[in-house]
Structure formats: structure tokens, C-alpha cells
Amino acid sequence: MNAQNWIAYWTITEREIRRFLRIWGQSLVPSAITTSLYFIVFGGLIGNRIGSLHGFSYAQYITPGLVMLAVITNSYTNVSTSFYLSKFIRNIEEVLVSPATSTVILLGYITGGVIRGLLIGAVVILISLFFTHIVIAHFFIMLLVIVLSSALFSIFGFINALYADNFDQISIIPTFVLTPLTYLGGIFYSIEMLPSHWQIVSHFNPVLYMVNTFRYGMLGQSDVNVVGSIIVLSLVAVLSFCLAWILLEKGVGIRT
């Protein structure tokens, strides 16, 4: 990228960061509250009766999943809401008229989503410290998985916002696709606890790989192959980026 592109990229990124910080009450607090509730209910009350899983207390075991849950929903919502609002208010036209390239625009929004993902990840980990003892087995894998997952869901959020014609259409996917996938993605259980046919079905759920590779980074334990998952996750992220780039270049949903 040349200097001009860098400035444009940073302008979009900074604008995105300022936006979610300005509305921190809507963007950061809700995840902090739900996470605390999960820890109180599942980690404390119910977790004590469950005993240990793979050698970890239940509260410890669910921490990585709760981090990923917050990361995924926050990244997705950040980009889909912000981009859709720009379409709605029409100030997206500022960027469309400008020489900022599709790559720059896309990277700006994704970075905004990733930074919100990292921030909310840190918040959830901080909260977990009140409820359980945290170990960090492989810090860089944790970081890598958060960045990859939040990038991927930022891209999904972007594509969703491109196609959306009204506000309902950006909450449909989170409600009907994202939430079920995350809840069934092994946040609260090890898939070894499932009957074998459900184990097979679970392997088609991309969130399972994110949660487990992240759990590997944190606790050193995973139900799936870590290296393979990271490679597949990276590939999917690159492919989704290309898809979003093509849609943006064509002007789907933004140019008549």
C-alpha cells in the first residue's frame, strides 16, 4: 500500500474504533454483563455440581468459549451495524466517491471489528479472573485465533450489511445463525460428551474449531486438531475476504 492508501485505511479504522468507544454502553457493556451472568450461573452454581472436565474446573473450562462467544458476536455486530448505518445515512457515499480502494475500505472495517474483538476478549478474560483461576498455555495461539475469528466474522458482518435493506435484515443472521452455531459450538461442553452422531454433526460447525483452538491456546486442551483448524480458518477468512471484495467492487447493495 502507498502512503495515500495507508492514510485512508487508518482514517476508516480510527473512525470505526471511535464509533464503538463512543457507544461503549451499547457495544462493550452488554457482553461484560452476559459473561458475568454465565460465570455466576454456570461457572459457580451449576459448575460446582459438574466437577472437572479434562482436568479443569467447569468455570475454567467454559472461559475460552465465553471469550469466543463475545468476540464473534461483537465483531460481527460492529461491522454489520456500522456499515449498514453508513448505507442508511448515506455517508458511505463519501467513501465511494473518494479514491479509497475496495481493499482499503474492507481492511478498515475489518480492523475496526478485530480491535473490538480483541478489546472485548480482554474484557471477558478480566471478568473471568473474578470467578476462576486463569492459565495461559499458548498466548500467541490465543491471539491468532481471536484475530482470525474476529476478522472472519467482521467479513461476514460486512457482507450481511451489503445485502441488507433494513435493520431487521442485520439482526436476522445473528439471531438465527450465529447464536445457534456458537451455543452448539462446544462452549459449554466437550463434544466427547455427545452421542457419536452428534459429534459428527458438530464437526461441520466452524465455531467448534474456533472455540477449541482458542481453548488450546488458553488451557492447552482441544477436541480438534489445532494446526489443521488454524489453516482452515485462515483459508476461509481469505476466501470470504475475496468474496466481500468482489461484492464491494461490483457495488452490490450500495450502487444502483
Partner: peptide
């Protein structure tokens, strides 16, 4: 300032 940023102006 944002507008200038989109055009790569310092």
C-alpha cells in the same frame, strides 16, 4: 478531517 483522510491527505 475524515474526508481528507479518505483522499490520503496528511
Amino acid at each position: 478531517l475524515q474526508q481528507a483522510g479518505y483522499y490520503g491527505i496528511s
